[in-house]
Design a protein around this nucleic acid. Structure first.
Length: 423
DNA sequence: TCTGGGGTCCTAGGACCC
DNA sequence: TCTGGGGTCCTAGGACCC
């Protein structure tokens, strides 16, 4: 049996945790650059604020209903996620952290009533972290997802927990779920399924898996089987090795000057290298991209990218920033209003086991590079990110994001700890 | 004026191998 | 007039996830 524990309106719940007076009020959290709505409290959903709505399009609605708005604060969400996962981990012999707010638990062979046990999990997570979660239980991951969804919609007599096997009519439940709400099906496949007359989860369950495989591929076949109770997706206890690292941002304002873009790309490359080293990986290729806004149809657009293979695997910021800037030079065209750029590190391999290069110099230089990077990382860890940085990053700060409504780093910065007063 | 960021998997087609 | 069979690797593009 799989149990899926999923935090309710996670980012909105995180914000409320340290602003309890917002309980019962509509709250939304915006994406980076205060662009789109990416989390909504139940009250905000009830008002009709859609997921992913651009902020500027719904500002009136937000003001009319007194919706409280936050910029995203990933430091806070990441830290609270870690705490929630630590609590969940104590309840199951095997578990898979699936996303920042979701965790699959293996409840197979536990000698308890699974609903009672899951209700205890929900209470404990709430009490120890302050974050509300819901749990769906089922014989496959896909059904556990659906069970969770139904629990969140108040369809379970047990409240925050729904066990699929206890449904009086699974057929009725499946029929109530639009095909696009199934895990792994989004608007495109959804539209094509609808053309075939398959509009809900029940119709998909009863469709011919081989036929759907020939039309959609193996992914759709697996979904059909999972809906029938045949488990095709197993618990991934150890995360598979990471294949790429990306750092990209939309700019607070459009950029045209090459120097501004250089500072942005250098900063992205430097940040990507920090991630690379903290995960003990080396990169074997680097890719740079930049683009104008895809939404701006009033002037000509431009988007391009370039991938540069490395002579030997590297984790050296100096080398990789240099390559990224050389890539940018080849991509950059004057006269455009750029909206976004990014750096990808590719073909990642574990540090220490990389294939050497027949041509690149090795030995003393790599040892020196590794020591230097370690010192930089240590200093930045002690004195704060960017305490020490590369000159090319500091040339311009024009690219900085907008984040006008950001809450404090309540749990990760001494200076921003919340104060509690007893009266 | 203003529309996120960071990932994965699958497939088809081309190029190549013996 | 007539030109095999069985593979792998790589890449781009599509689709999806949270």
């Amino acid at each position: 049996m799989f149990a899926l524990a999923d935090c309710n309106n996670f980012y909105a719940s995180c914000e409320r945790l340290f602003a309890p007076h917002l309980e019962g009020r509509p709250v939304v959290v915006l994406s980076n650059n205060d662009g789109c709505v990416i989390a909504r409290s139940n009250e905000a959903k009830a008002i009709g604020i859609p997921m992913g709505a651009p902020y500027f399009q719904i500002e009136k609605l937000i003001r009319r209903h007194g919706v409280v708005v936050f910029s995203s604060n990933y430091t806070l969400y990441g830290d609270l996620s870690r705490r929630v996962m630590a609590v969940l981990a104590g309840f199951a012999p095997r578990y898979e952290v699936y996303s920042i707010d979701e965790c699959f638990l293996d409840l197979f062979a536990l000698p308890f009533d699974l609903t009672d046990y899951s209700l205890r999990i929900v209470r404990t997570v709430k009490q120890w972290t302050g974050i509300p979660v819901s749990i769906g239980i089922a014989p496959t991951k896909t059904l556990a997802k659906l069970a969770n969804r139904l629990a969140k919609k108040g369809q379970s007599p047990a409240g925050a927990v729904l066990d699929w096997s206890r449904l009086l009519s699974p057929e009725q439940a499946l029929a109530s779920i639009p095909v696009e709400d199934i895990w792994g099906i989004a608007s495109r496949s959804g539209a094509r399924l609808r053309e075939l007359g398959i509009t809900n989860a029940l119709a998909l369950r009863d469709a011919d898996p081989k036929r759907l495989r020939s039309i959609f591929g193996v992914v759709m076949e697996r979904i059909v089987l999972e809906l029938r109770g045949t488990s095709c997706l197993s618990l991934e206890i150890a995360p598979p090795p990471q294949k790429q690292i990306m750092v990209s941002r939309s700019f607070g304002d459009r950029l045209s000057a090459q120097d501004d873009l250089r500072a942005a790309v250098a900063s992205f490359a430097a940040r990507a290298c920090e991630k690379l080293r903290s995960r003990r990986l080396h990169a074997q290729a680097l890719s740079v991209f930049l683009q104008t806004s895809p939404f701006d149809t009033s002037r000509p657009g431009y988007a391009n990218s370039l991938t540069i293979p490395l002579e030997a695997p590297s984790q050296d910021s100096h080398l990789l920033i240099g390559l990224a800037l050389r890539g940018l030079e080849r991509l950059y065209l004057p006269g455009y209003a750029y909206q976004k750029a990014g750096v990808l590190l590719l073909d990642l391999v574990p540090s220490g086991v990389q294939q050497g290069s027949l041509f690149a110099p090795s030995g003393a230089d790599t040892v020196r590079s590794a020591s230097l990077m370690a010192v930089i990382d240590r200093i930045n860890h002690s004195f704060g990110r960017q305490a020490l940085r590369f000159g090319s990053e500091a040339v311009s700060a024009q690219w900085r994001m907008r984040a006008l409504l950001k809450s404090p780093a309540y749990t990760t910065r001494w200076a921003e700890l919340p104060r509690v007063r007893a009266t």
